[in-house]
Amino acid sequence: MQSFGYVKATGTDKALAGFAVNARFIAGGTTLVDLMKLGVEKPSGLVDINLLPLDKIEPTASGGLMIGALVRNSDLAWNSTVKERYAVLSQALLSGASPQLRNMATTGGNLLQRVRCAYFREPSAGQPGGYGCNKRVPGTGCAAMDGFHRVHAVLGTSEHCIATHPSDMCVAMAALEAVVHVEGPNGKRTIAFADFHKLPADTPQIENALAAGELVTYVELPKPVEGAKSAYLKLRDRASYEFALASAAVVARVEGGRVRYVRVALGGVGTKPWRSHEAEAALMGKEATEANFRAAAEAALRHAKVRRDNAFKVELAKRCVVRTLKLATTA
């Protein structure tokens, strides 16, 4: 049996001190425990951070919102400030997983969700005789390339990994330009959301900018853009409990019929929460028309790379972007 240490940290300093090589912080456990059961994660120890005072949602001096890493997805989604001022985030959270999972899953944990690639989740992936998985064991190949990859990414892929980033919450946070606060052995620092998740490139095993032993403490949302509206739309095979085939988060302000501010992020199609500067550039200053939305969607997917079974995602994502732009720009 794979035995592991377990400590329940009572303060952030203690949590950081308790962290050892190959340990993991555990909060809601909805990803980590699942992967431990599958034999994908084999930590030497768990540092339980659930007692840390990181479960508050508080206004910041600059008019934004500071979200503790332990705030549960449900609590964040139903928070009245989030619902009113960051609707895209509430909608994204409520479109994810199931109520039971959302009650457990935390803000920090959601940032660190692992991919849902069937091969990555195979117990023997990356082992001799098992499926190739560069994320599990670099250099062993990628079984998804020619395998079951209908749900895999078309943006940000590399020849080493095409797994889709599964989070809905992160797509909204990308569009909101959130900032991730972390604390580690070398102190505190902040990471811009766009820099937090890493593209697979040649190192698909590195998924984010956290250094060893660094703990996510808060996610900060900037002050809402004056006059902007936002929306999240998720498209999938069934109405609930399924990861996105394509999703979009939009924050936009239209004045006099023209787009004066816009942020577009895509989910379900990228190897990380996919902020589309291309779509934004195509829209800025343009009239808020269907034709311009379509042009923005085309721009967002221009560099899509498809495999045998996931080509449909390109068109689906475009339709998703167009509809979400409409939702965020109409009264």
């Binding site: 849902r116 095979d237 069934r238």
Partner: peptide, 28 residues
């Protein structure tokens, strides 16, 4: 929704979990 998908290289039903083998949920 429903379809069991086999990996042709190994013969494994590759969507063999309740998250990956899609059935109608209450919301459907």
């Amino acid at each position: 929704m429903e379809e069991t998908i086999y990996d042709e290289r190994t013969g494994q039903p590759i969507n063999g979990s309740m998250a990956d083998y899609l059935m109608a949920t209450c919301a459907d």
